[in-house]
Simulated scan of single mutants.
Amino acid sequence: MNVRVLDAGDAALTIEFGDAIDPRLLASVNALDAAISRMHAEGGLPGLIETMPTFRSLTVFFDPLATSRAALRNALEPLLAAAETVAPPAARHWRLPVCYEGEAAPDLAETARAIGRSADEVVALHSGTEYLVYMLGFLPGFPFMGDLPAALRLPRRGEPRVRVPAGSVAIATGLTAIYPWESPGGWHLLGRCPVPLFDAGRGAPALLAAGDRVRFEPVGTAEYRRLTAAIAAREIAPQHWLAADGAHETRP
């Protein structure tokens, strides 16, 4: 693995582990991020402000009045060596319901035509794959997940939408994602998930985290509405969707 440490302005360093979307690179990014957090909690790394992980890199922000670039880099060297050889940590497994019907799936038919499959085949392909959460970004709690089956890989839409509804489940290139908030977006919308991905009132506001594993469970429109109402009434806790053994029912 070819690790590069790059300057990112006068108060940050970026550690690059590679130049691809690859689970091995993600494991190294997450391992380094966790090691930095542990060292900082134990009183090390004075001047550290925060870290920002991506698919293949970790940016470390620091206070240049409290530490120097050289001191920080020297402190990170032993952590870098360990992160390059780390095994992927045990993942949390999520089973999230998705409605692939009607207005919840505005691009399903078009996607099916584009790849020469039926709508049912698109749903089976998308929901039959376990996805790895590579990173959160773009919006709070927005998970970039891979790897999409080859048959579903399409470029982004030629004309992005001004408004994509919250909960929309989308695909583009080799990734799939869920929009936590209403926002503009140029991905293909295949369905909608009723589970909120971000809640500022929780200790960990984002439901998903890098390294998590996600499967989608198709539900009909009536069940989607029932789940939406039950979640809004707080009858279903976020932990309901965790499945340590990879299997979980959507019905509370």
Rank of each mutant, 00 (worst) to 15 (best):
Y131I: 05
V133N: 04
Y134F: 15
M135L: 12
L136D: 02
L136G: 10
G137A: 06
G137V: 05
F138W: 04
F138S: 07
P140N: 12
F142D: 07
F144N: 01
F144H: 02
F144Q: 02
M145T: 09
M145P: 08
D147V: 06
L148N: 05
L148Y: 10
P149R: 09
P149A: 02
A150K: 14
R153S: 05
R153F: 04
L154I: 14
R157Y: 00
R157I: 03
R157G: 04
R157Q: 12
E159Q: 13
P160L: 13
V162F: 00
R163L: 04
P165L: 08
P165K: 13
G167M: 12
S168V: 10
A170H: 02
A170Q: 05
I171A: 09
T173I: 04
L175K: 03
T176S: 15
A177N: 12
I178E: 12
Y179C: 11
P180N: 08
E182V: 11
P184H: 13
L189A: 02
L190V: 10
P196K: 02
D199V: 00
A200G: 06
A200V: 14
G201K: 09
G201M: 06
R202Q: 15
A204N: 07
L207D: 05
G211K: 03
D212P: 00
R213I: 00
V214K: 05
V214N: 01
E217A: 14
E217C: 10
G220K: 08
T221F: 01
Y224I: 07
R225D: 14
R226Q: 15
L227Q: 03
T228I: 01
T228A: 13
A229M: 03
A232M: 06
A232N: 04
A233W: 00
R234D: 15
R234F: 00
A237S: 11
P238Y: 14
A243C: 04
D245A: 07
H248Q: 15
H248C: 14
T250N: 09
